[in-house]
Write a protein that binds this DNA or RNA. Structure first.
Length: 458
RNA sequence: GUGGUUGUAGCUCAGUUGGUGAGAGCGCCAGAUUGUGGAUCUGGAGGUCGCCGGUUCGAGGCCGGUCUUCCACCCCA
């Protein structure tokens, strides 16, 4: 007895209707990427664990899918480690590859490996799936597609400006209203510095990040619960209470952070970027959000996160600047910046907002009825001529009852049916049926393609 | 990773405190219409009740485990 087949948790099949809608999203993104002069690359689904580990923080490392070594992978494992069920000691020996967790780290690896072929600044885009061993939820999958654009080998904040504009343009074209939140890791470092709690930066930003959910008082409690000293919390007050426009926030921060070199540097960068953005306004709301931290370890400067304005959905796009990702792979001093579009979440958002209307079930425009072996050569010729004329045509594969063939055209939403049985062939003209109106027209065979072309344009 | 939740026909779901052959709507197939789809009518096929084990005279309803779904936390696209 065959058991029901299934696919791994958090993965999905995509039907033709879904693929048509997904491809619309990918095509739009790809079009804008290349409009700005970015070039495509691809990298392998799996990377060496040495490439992957340590780049995403503790949580990230845990979420990397490991690939079991081939062959007798237990041969090198010491029996004591095995019997002690020492997971980390054992995995080191039995797995040396993993599925990629994002596209940025493989990109940095790519840049280092191909440095002699690359002209900097290097602008690339990459649209491929990534895998995370997360617990699936709505909008959270274990296999999902990221669409990354990055420019590496340039410190200029003009790149940040450009990425914001690309983001604005893509979501504008897709019809999604968005909020772009920006922040700068150097400002966050400055905050921790003036609070005298540099090593607690993560705890502090995680707590500040919850301000929308739990309020200012909640943030104070959260900080206290994390063991942040009351004096430190007091020094953080101006930051917890921050409000107003980006300019106003920056002014407050400038005062509060005068003693932090990195904080001031972050503020200067933020001012420069907002200056660029002011040159030509973008459609989306762009706001400074100090609570934006982002868990990925490698970010060092600007960080960006995009959410849909009309839905309480988690981020659909995110990114930032990484000053030394390539340094880990032996190529120091090369700064890059990029953003990643989450195609699957964008799809979910667009479905919920009804921005992806149901498409026709088939791309076929004409179905040629199959009448059997006597008429077949003539019918094959007709179908061939229609295709020559650029009309998507199907010839029904079996000489089935007309009822069945028409029902097929109906359920596949094929708009036209060409009927050419013995009567029509004898008379030298086919019958063309418009499935929507039910109207039937007799058309001489030599005028068939031009007749159908005219129907298409009208 | 922590806590909770879901799983009955292809789909959406009923199934009363465990007790006669497991149901509906939609869909599917066939016929009414042997060269014409969407409407209508008639008939038909299709279910190891997620999986494994347990309790019971008896389990789709109870218990344990497991997988899956969705939700909160965590984190993120």
């Amino acid at each position: 007895m065959a058991q029901k087949p299934s696919i791994p948790k958090g993965t999905r099949d995509f039907s033709p209707a879904e693929m048509l809608r997904r491809n619309y999203i990918f095509d739009t993104i790809r079009k804008i990427f290349s409009l700005y002069g970015y070039l495509p690359i691809e990298t392998p689904a799996m990377e060496n664990l040495s490439t992957l580990l340590g780049k995403y923080g503790e949580e990230g490392d845990r979420l990397i899918f490991r690939i079991l070594n081939s062959g007798n992978f237990l041969a090198d494992v010491s029996p004591s480690a095995l019997s002690a069920a020492d997971t980390s000691a054992v995995t080191r020996h039995i797995s040396e590859k993993g599925l990629r967790y994002d596209l940025t780290v493989p990109f940095a690896r790519y840049v280092v490996q191909h440095r002699d072929e690359i002209t900097f600044p290097f602008r690339r885009y990459q649209i491929q799936p990534v895998w995370r061993a997360d617990k699936p939820q709505r909008g959270r999958y274990r296999e999902f597609f990221q669409c990354d654009v990055d420019v590496i080998g340039s410190d200029s904040l003009l790149n940040e400006d450009e990425l914001v504009r690309i983001t604005d343009r893509i979501f504008g074209e897709l019809g999604i209203n968005i909020i772009i939140k920006i922040n700068n890791r150097k400002i966050l470092a400055g905050i921790a510095e003036i609070a005298g709690a540099g090593e607690r930066l993560t705890d502090i930003t995680v707590a500040i990040d919850k301000i929308e959910k739990i309020g200012r008082e909640g943030v104070r409690q959260e900080l206290a619960a994390k063991g942040i000293a009351p004096g430190v919390i007091a020094r953080l007050e101006p930051i917890i209470d921050l409000s107003g426009s980006t300019e106003q926030k920056l002014a407050v921060l400038k005062k509060a952070m005068a003693e932090s070199a990195s904080g001031m540097q972050g503020i200067r960068e933020m001012e420069e970027l907002t200056g660029y953005l002011a040159v030509e306004p973008v459609k989306a709301t762009v706001e400074l959000d100090l609570s934006l931290a982002r868990g990925l370890n490698y970010y060092t400067g600007t960080i960006i996160e995009v959410s849909a304005a009309d839905l309480p959905f988690s981020s659909i796009c995110g990114g930032g600047r990484y000053d030394d990702l390539t340094g880990i792979f032996g190529m120091p001093g090369v700064s890059g910046v990029g953003v990643s579009f989450g195609a699957d979440r964008i799809y979910d958002v667009m479905m919920q907002l009804n921005l992806l209307p149901e498409q026709t079930g088939s791309s076929t425009e004409v179905l040629v009825i199959n009448f059997g072996s006597a008429e077949l050569p003539a019918l094959m010729k007709v179908a061939g001529e229609l295709r020559e004329a650029g009309i998507a045509t199907e010839l029904y594969p079996d000489p089935a009852k007309l009822r069945k063939q028409f029902a097929y055209a109906d359920s596949c939403m094929i708009p036209l049916v060409v009927i050419a049985g013995s009567n029509e062939l004898a008379a030298g003209q086919a019958t063309v049926k418009n499935m929507k109106t039910g109207e039937q027209t007799a058309v001489p065979f030599h005028e068939l393609t031009s007749f159908i072309r005219r129907l298409k344009t009208s």
